[in-house]
Simulated assay, not measured.
Amino acid sequence: MSRDEHGRLLPGRISAPRPVPTTIPRPEYVGKAGPRDYDGDDRYDPAEIERIRTSGRIAAQALEAVAAAIRPGVTTDALDAIGHEFLITHDAYPSTLGYRGYRKSICTSINEVICHGIPDDTVLLEGDIVNIDITAFHDGMHGDLNATFAVGEISPETTDLVSHTREALARGIRAVAPGRSINVIGRAIESYAKRFGYGVVKDYTGHGVGSAFHSGLVIPHYDASPGFATVMEPGMVFTIEPMLTMGTPAHPGTTEWDEWADGWTVVTRDRSLTAQFEHTLVVTERGADILTLP
């Protein structure tokens, strides 16, 4: 049973981790309690950026393959199998698999799940929305993206939430420019979300990515002035991944959340719907170049 009598999600049964051929290199954290502290730079040279782009392209194509299978009656574990198989057949390691003990190759976050939903035997139903988050590790680099999809027909209000969250990401990306503080990204996202009365999740953010899955660089999706004054520079690589909710914000611009006992699944406290979109990008002299396109 993966839903209660009100249709709210419950933890399902999680299958065993899927095997990865030994010929595919693993990130350094696999088999360990966590990744080592990252002491590198968030800026990359042109050759390194192209390696991240290759990983991002594999992840984006894997996302397309998973999205093509989304329909009522499909389990999230079946979606994980598709994403896993696509990655390994393209000589990429699923970055989430073995990261701090995470057992699956993608994240599947349905309806009220903000992020980090674990694929299991939950069956997708008509009217659901599901976020698919995939990161590929290839040639020493991670490429990370996610998107939210409709399962069959969804309500007009839900359609609006999904389309507005996609646009919030686009506005965050358009705010990227060298010499600007990273805070302008969140300011652009939050000001747009407020037009529709959406909550913005503050505690889960974008991050530096590349040779490390998470470098330590934090990209807030809300106006965090006067903090987060890091200045964007050409060559910086990070994700932007806003999470918007339909629930009443507990405080202006934020939404309360709960974490399940599995230590991963994060849900809105009022169980309202939430959507998310993400890209990995590099700061250029003229703005941003998206690295996670198919």
Rank of each mutant, 00 (worst) to 15 (best):
D91Q: 15
M232G: 13
I189L: 12
A136N: 00
A33Q: 07
I118Q: 09
I106P: 00
E190G: 06
V209H: 02
S95Y: 00
E256V: 07
E278D: 10
V66G: 07
V20M: 04
P46S: 07
E256N: 07
V200H: 04
A81K: 10
S95G: 13
W257K: 09
I110R: 04
R53Q: 11
L9F: 02
I58T: 09
A62C: 10
P249Q: 10
A136I: 00
L293N: 07
T122E: 00
G263C: 05
P249L: 04
V200K: 03
I110F: 05
T248N: 10
V30D: 00
S211N: 05
T280Q: 02
I52F: 03
T254H: 09
L97F: 04
G197T: 06
A16H: 11
I154Q: 03
V201E: 09
E241A: 15
Y99R: 11
V66H: 02
P242Q: 13
A224E: 08
L244F: 10
P21K: 06
Y93D: 06
I24Y: 08
A212K: 11
T89R: 15
D4N: 15
T265C: 03
V283Q: 11
E256C: 03
A193N: 00
I154P: 01
G140A: 04
I14W: 01
G12F: 12
D139G: 12
I24Q: 00
P156T: 02
G208W: 13
L169M: 12
H207E: 02
R180P: 03
G83R: 04
R100C: 09
A16V: 10
R269S: 09
E112Y: 03
E126G: 08
A175D: 12
A193Q: 03
G199R: 06
H90K: 06
L9Y: 03
L244M: 06
S2K: 05
A150F: 01
Y198W: 12
G287C: 10
I118M: 14
R187S: 13
I82S: 00
E256A: 14
I129D: 01
G227K: 10
L161V: 04
D223T: 11
D80W: 09
L79A: 09
K202V: 12
T159H: 14
R100P: 00
I240Y: 04
Y222T: 12
L244Y: 04
R171Y: 09
V283R: 11
I14V: 15
A78R: 10
H116G: 05
E50C: 02
A150S: 12
I106N: 07
D120T: 10
C115R: 15
T254V: 02
G247S: 11
S155H: 05
R195N: 12
S215L: 01
D41E: 11
L244I: 05
R103A: 14
L87S: 03
H116C: 12
P156N: 02
I106R: 05
E28A: 15
S2T: 15
S109R: 12
D223G: 06
R8A: 02
V20L: 06
D144K: 05
D39W: 14
Y44A: 09
M1E: 12
V113W: 01
S2L: 07
W260E: 13
H251R: 14
E167I: 08
G127D: 09
A33Y: 01
A224Q: 05
D39P: 00
P19V: 13
H279T: 11
A229L: 07
G172E: 14
R43C: 14
G98H: 06
A65M: 01
